[in-house]
Design a protein around this nucleic acid. Structure first.
Lengths: 378, 378
DNA sequence: GTTAACTGTTTAATCAGTTTAACAATTTAT
DNA sequence: ATAAATTGTTAAACTGATTAAACAGTTAAC
């Protein structure tokens, strides 16, 4: 499969098809060598407004910023001029002066499909919505190794690109995070050095407990776990609760019940392969995220094991469009959108001078669908 | 299904769980009321560097910008001071003066899962990679109705947030696009008013031809089409080629072979339902994107029709992680990553003063997988 | 009737850079 | 030897806002 059929050209190439340069190494840009647009319509500045309104620029500025020292009459008069001239303050000048950019950065890990990922996407939606409401713009960056090496993450602050940064998808392995300790930043959906950095994350312990309760109540006793990124504190939370809950139920955890699925679809499938071969008695799988759960189900079904009749599978995330999977996935719902909202909110209040450490943990809940069932008695 | 199990709280709530405010209406922000961080470490400015190096700030600036009028010796000496002091130029001041922000905006449609969408994600990856190489940052916005109404898309330029804008996922229905005509902007993967705006899009005509060729060669004659967004020129391209190719093969297109699938999974399923009931003889479906194709396959399989034995399905997009679908999807590969790269490149050259209209069309190819087969003779 | 307090506005400094024009010091041409 | 051209550096103007301090003009207090 994946064979390519050679395609012929469209019959009417009425549109020019231009060759694209495809340089791979970074391109040096001389900031100054750029030609200034000749026909750039002269922007209206605060001076123009001041002149037109017959007041000083300080007055216009104060009107703009609703300074109470400006009288009602002047305010109205100046505002009218502002509106009629269609004046919009240059925010570069505003930021230069006020020291606030009203821009936040979101840093994503250097994964190939980071921008197309449902997990990040959901968090991003929350961040974007709240940032907009708080009057902030969003800058998106991917923390490639080169990016970190060049200190671009620090430049973000130092060169005044942004007021604060939200870090998604990182864990304690990503040591560059500690470079940002001195600036406003929130680690999203993880912890770091247990309390050294501000963070907001889902209650993975609660989620794990809900998932394990469900499986145990359904009578499962041989429960495998497809985990990932054990260097991540929140991922470890799940592993720990998994172990604790089994032990509390009087079940001794076997080493052979654990496999790393790398948070990917393929990884989930491979882990399911490994686990089912290492221990034929496994009747249920707890997976660290939905992607691995789906990979596992795909593998199981393709190898003649019925889900959930032969083996139950529980995921983690509750990615929306997976609700249509067949069988639909029982999973721990993580409030990812709300997590984004919370993170954004916390970051902004941090920027505005709030000094307490941020450490929010959002509750989860289990969504029971079709991939789990009562254990089959033999 | 989708019933929720009530979850109990984690046993050790060692981390404070703070209540979150959840305001829904926009929050007024007074730019000036923000307290300036007291302990802000005094940033090093160009003046400090100049003093330390014993030259004027003009010289430092010229060193920074590699102005050739600076002698080799001075350059080295000043650069050494810059490095030793860890000086990083404030880009607000640079941009204020140079009139270039080195920031691009990406505007996405106001869809719920725009950030988690594989189609947008792939384009975004391309844009992000190339923008980084060209020394540009990326601002991401969602064009909600309110956003447009308030003219925020124009503010992006007028207030000097960005130098240019990339518009993803819009079509001729989105009239706000014409507001941006006078500024550097590229419409990505569509046209507008056929040539009024700069654009870069995939060759949907070529793609449609490749898909139809494939189905016709496999012997299909009753081919249904699940389209979407007929207000989109590129979507219309596909519809037109579909019709033309059938006609060229001596097949009269029936009205009942067409259904709108809204570009969604559910829409695809609903359209498949409609089409198969309107015309029992349909043996193949051409779908406007992969999501609808998958929805259609899901519907068909759930209703006892075998894919591809009973009915072949071809998609459009070639979304990566769908390669694992079962059956895997035969689809038209759109070079979305390259599209992002091209769009970004074109935008930057536009910003730098290139005046020719941008009108790139990138070639597609068919990826033959398991969802298509030779037509079943009865 | 002078002083004090309050209002509303403006002057001028500041944010941190870029860039033009001027200038001194050399080098080259006549 | 003098004028012209070249080279490297700098002073000063400029980008477009904010804001502390100064300043009139009223009003209130004693």
């Amino acid at each position: 499969m994946a064979e390519k059929l050679k395609g012929e050209t469209t019959e009417s190439p009425d549109i020019a098809r231009t060759a694209l340069t495809s340089t791979t190494e970074p391109i040096q840009v001389n900031f100054n060598a750029l030609p200034v647009e000749e026909n750039a319509p002269d922007r209206i500045s605060i001076r123009d407004v001041a002149k037109q309104a017959g007041v000083s620029i300080a007055t216009v500025s104060m009107v703009l910023n609703q300074n109470p020292r400006i009288s009602r009459g002047t305010h109205v008069r100046v505002q009218r001029v502002i509106d009629s001239m269609g004046y919009r303050p240059n925010r570069l000048a505003q930021s230069l002066s006020s020291r606030y950019t009203q821009v936040l950065a979101v840093i994503l890990p250097p994964l190939r499909h980071a921008f197309a990922d449902a997990y990040f996407g959901e968090i991003l939606s929350g961040i974007s919505d709240r940032a907009g409401k708080l009057g902030h713009k969003l800058l998106i960056e991917q923390a490639k190794p080169q990016y970190i090496k060049e200190g671009k993450h620090i430049e973000l602050y130092e060169r005044r690109f942004v007021d604060g940064v939200l870090c998604l998808g990182f864990n304690e392995k990503h040591t560059f995070l500690s470079d940002l300790r001195q600036y406003p930043m929130i680690l999203v959906d993880n912890r770091f050095g247990d309390g050294l950095l501000d963070f907001v994350h889902c209650d993975y312990r609660m989620g794990a407990k809900q998932a394990m309760n469900c499986l145990l109540q359904l009578g499962h006793r041989n429960i495998g776990m497809i985990y990932a990124a054990p260097e991540s504190p929140t991922a470890r939370d799940v592993l720990e609760v998994y172990t604790t809950e089994l032990r509390n139920a009087g079940i001794e955890v076997k080493e052979s019940w654990l496999a790393d699925g790398c948070f990917t679809d393929e990884g989930g499938a491979a882990a399911a392969d490994l686990l089912t071969h290492r221990d034929k008695d496994i009747t249920a799988l707890l997976c660290g995220n939905d992607k691995m759960a789906l990979g596992a189900i795909r593998y199981l079904v393709e190898h003649g094991r019925k889900v959930p009749q032969d083996i139950s599978v529980v995921g983690f995330d509750d990615i929306q469009h997976l609700a249509y999977a067949n069988p639909s996935l029982t999973t721990v719902h993580l409030p990812l959108y709300e997590l984004g909202v919370a993170a954004c909110e916390r970051l902004v209040s941090r920027i505005r001078g709030k000094v307490d450490r941020v450490a929010d943990v959002l509750p989860t809940h289990l969504v029971l669908r079709e991939s789990t069932s009562i254990v089959r008695t033999r």
